[in-house]
């Protein structure tokens, strides 16, 4: 029997909710009892990509407006993980951000690299007046 879990959640556009979303991602990973790899590492990675994507939406797309919301949808099966992070702001196309220069010690600019390193596919587009960052990872 193929199992599928979908979590659809909206939280205020504030960094204090990063840990809540990250924790949900970790708990979902721990449900994947057929996953062949290290489940704790997968849990950490899901927590991390959710944290990075949501922090980007809060800071860059919704420009720290606490009245806005971040909408996150996580869909997980034994085969695949899909994450969508919606923002209603001006947009922040992370799919076009270049790889960081490892020789330069910048304070920021590693978040997108981390997302791209841990997920198989990352896209960003506008749909129905909202921007959506879509990320997917094959779990087989």
């Amino acid at each position: 029997m193929k199992r599928e879990i979908e979590v659809d959640i909206k939280v205020p556009n504030q960094t204090r909710y990063l840990s809540l979303i990250g924790r949900i991602g970790e708990d979902l990973a721990r449900e994947l009892d057929k996953y062949q790899g290290d489940r704790e590492t997968l849990a950490y990675h899901i927590n991390l990509v959710l944290t990075e994507a949501m922090a980007n939406a809060i800071k860059h797309a919704n420009v720290n407006d606490p009245e806005k919301y971040v909408h996150i949808c996580i869909n997980i099966t034994d085969d695949d993980l899909f994450i969508k992070v919606y923002d209603s702001g001006q947009g922040f196309d992370i799919s076009n951000i270049p790889k960081p220069d490892f020789e330069k010690l910048d304070d920021s600019g590693r978040g997108v690299f981390i997302i791209k390193s841990l997920m198989d596919k990352v896209t960003y587009h506008r749909i129905n007046g909202e921007n959506v960052l879509e990320m997917s990872k094959n779990l087989k």
Partner: peptide, 14 residues
């Protein structure tokens, strides 16, 4: 758990 901003804070400290 550490994310890119946590790493960034330590880089800033360095």
């Amino acid at each position: 758990f550490i994310d890119s901003s946590g790493l960034g804070a330590l880089v800033s400290g360095f």
